[in-house]
Design a protein around this nucleic acid. Structure first.
Lengths: 108, 108
DNA sequence: CCAATATTTCCATTATTGTGGAAATCATGG
DNA sequence: CCATGATTTCCACAATAATGGAAATATTGG
């Protein structure tokens, strides 16, 4: 992952509608969600949601698969892990970390 | 962490200058960096950098401490861990994850 | 207290982003 | 092959964010 991809992914998440949609997709896991379902859940007009789903897709955070009349969106979990790793790369120059990592990745 | 705090933190990271500054601070670890050092390292004018450091500070991602003439900025690592956790909360409804978490936190 | 250095604020300009109504496209069931 | 439901594109407006020059504000060493 290069810097501009990271910025794009972070920008995709840095917006209320998109963050809510993304988190709903995280919870839904492998089964994913359709735009209609997300639109209903969040109370956002379909066209507005479509705009935001496109942002998430372009950022590589979610994938789409057409299933009959619907399109199912899913989080790209591997990509997400790469992004999180990018944020914490070379933490503390490799020195021992002051704050113990709990259930999260090492971040000093 | 509530949604608006998460959006603010993600927006703070979703910008080239700020992301580079943040990652430099991650590497510097506990010792932190001064605006002057970051400004030199990134080749960004001091006033522009100051603007971006303020954004990172307001987002709660970094702290500042005056040491003599300088101000030392440091990553707030605990806060950062909370943010990363927020992004992956209730992943997959608790079902077993398809993709094994490697060195990162569980993200399916 | 003054000179020097570090950092921030002010300000105006430019560029980007979010929003939703209306219309278009797409895929399928009958 | 047409009616229906799902999703996306088009468009224009309003709001927000990034930039850097110039000036202002600390803080300290001498």
């Amino acid at each position: 992952m290069d810097q501009s991809a990271a910025v794009q992914a972070l920008a995709a998440l840095a917006q209320s509608v998109r963050l809510r949609a993304f988190r709903a997709l995280v919870v839904s896991g492998k089964s994913g969600l359709t735009p209609g379902a997300i639109s209903d859940a969040l109370g956002v007009p379909a066209n507005t949601l479509s705009f935001h789903l496109k942002e998430l897709t372009h950022a590589g955070l979610v994938t789409q698969e057409r299933i009959s009349r619907n399109i199912v969106y899913r989080v790209d979990f591997e990509r997400m892990n790469v992004l999180l790793g990018y944020l914490t790369e070379n933490c503390c120059e490799g020195a021992a970390c002051a704050v113990e990592a709990k259930d999260a990745q090492c971040l000093c």
